[in-house]
């Protein structure tokens, strides 16, 4: 494109964009209004409500009564809530290490483009297009004592083996963990995306310099997909904060409070018409989500460029 022509064009562009804009302010805000309404009614109003009512005693019929920090005090002295926090920490650590680690491992393998890598990628996605509810049920059957494949497999070697994985302590915690542990395809896709963006010359140069495959992976590939791994960690920890079906459809928090978590407590409080208490739990979930984001951003230095 020649110089003067394109300059003329940009000038023309500037003028016409401006005229379009001033002429259409009304339209612009009209177009924005539906999104703003969604934001107001389904995000802002709920968040303001949960924060405000978390300081009240409220049954949904009478007016909320201000009780200060009582709900929070009750939460932090309630053993079910404390166990939920402990579980959340344990699940988050497992998610950030084993779950994300497996996803990264699969990505590194697929990046080598072995035979069948596309099929593997496509198949790995299947667990993710099925509802978490269905997946929880499938694992409930896998771990069932009489018909489950796990126990039937073990009984081939140890004939009298009987364990109710979802109903016995301490196995229940691990049974719930297995409903999601290996399904980290999102991490795989994210990391794979970043790996594909690494300039080929980089790995080739390293190989020419005598680096082994392992060294290339450890020193070049992994550091360069730091952001994708960090995003994966955030996604998988926030999914633990919000984990519901995997517990509600299997153990419902039991045995005892072994597999309790905050969403289960929250739903139970709504059913018991303890709205103030339910919303205090909601506030904690909200804060935990923000905490995760900030912490992982900091640890993975995600705001800095990788190159």
């Amino acid at each position: 494109m020649s110089g003067p022509y394109s300059r003329e064009k940009t000038m023309q562009k500037k003028i016409s964009t401006n005229t379009i804009q001033t002429k259409y302010y009304k339209w612009i805000y009209l177009f924005l209004t539906p999104s703003i309404l969604v934001f107001l009614f389904f995000y802002l109003q709920p968040i303001v409500t949960i924060i405000y009512t978390s300081f009240t005693k409220w049954d949904g019929f009478n007016h909320p009564q201000f009780i200060g920090l009582e709900n929070y005090q009750k939460m932090f002295t309630n053993s079910a809530f404390l166990i939920s926090l402990k579980n959340l920490v344990a699940w988050s650590v497992i998610a950030a290490t084993l779950h994300v680690g497996f996803g990264v491992l699969v990505a590194l393998v697929l990046y080598q483009r072995p035979k069948g890598w596309k099929l593997t990628r496509a198949v790995f996605m299947i667990p993710n297009v099925i509802s978490a509810a269905a997946w929880a049920m499938i694992y409930k059957f896998i771990f069932k004592d009489d018909i489950g494949i796990l126990n039937n497999f073990i009984r081939v070697f140890i004939p009298e083996f009987h364990v109710q994985w979802f109903y016995e302590s301490p196995y229940a915690f691990w049974a719930v963990t297995f409903t999601w542990l290996f399904y980290s395809v999102i991490v795989t896709l994210l990391v794979l995306n970043d790996l594909m963006a690494i300039p080929q010359e980089l790995s080739e140069a390293a190989r020419v310099d005598g680096a082994s495959k392992w060294q290339v992976i450890r020193q070049i590939h992994l550091p360069l997909c730091r952001n994708a791994i960090g995003t994966g960690v955030i996604c998988s920890i926030t999914a633990r904060v919000a984990m519901y079906e995997q517990i509600a459809l299997t153990t419902v928090g039991g045995p005892g409070d072994d597999t309790m978590n905050i969403p289960i407590i929250l739903v139970k409080s709504i059913q018991d018409l303890k709205y103030g208490y339910a919303n205090a739990n909601g506030v904690i979930m909200f804060l935990l989500g923000i905490l995760t984001l900030v912490a992982v951003n900091y640890i993975f230095r995600m705001n800095e460029s990788v190159y």
Binding site: F42, Y43, Q45, P46, I47, T49, I50, T53, T238, V241, A242, Y244, P263, L266, V267, I270, Y275, A278, N279, G282, V283, M285, F286, G289
Partner: peptide, 9 residues
């Protein structure tokens, strides 16, 4: 915002 946090409102 976790979806469940807004459950009651």
């Amino acid at each position: 915002v976790p979806a469940q946090a807004k459950a009651q409102p």
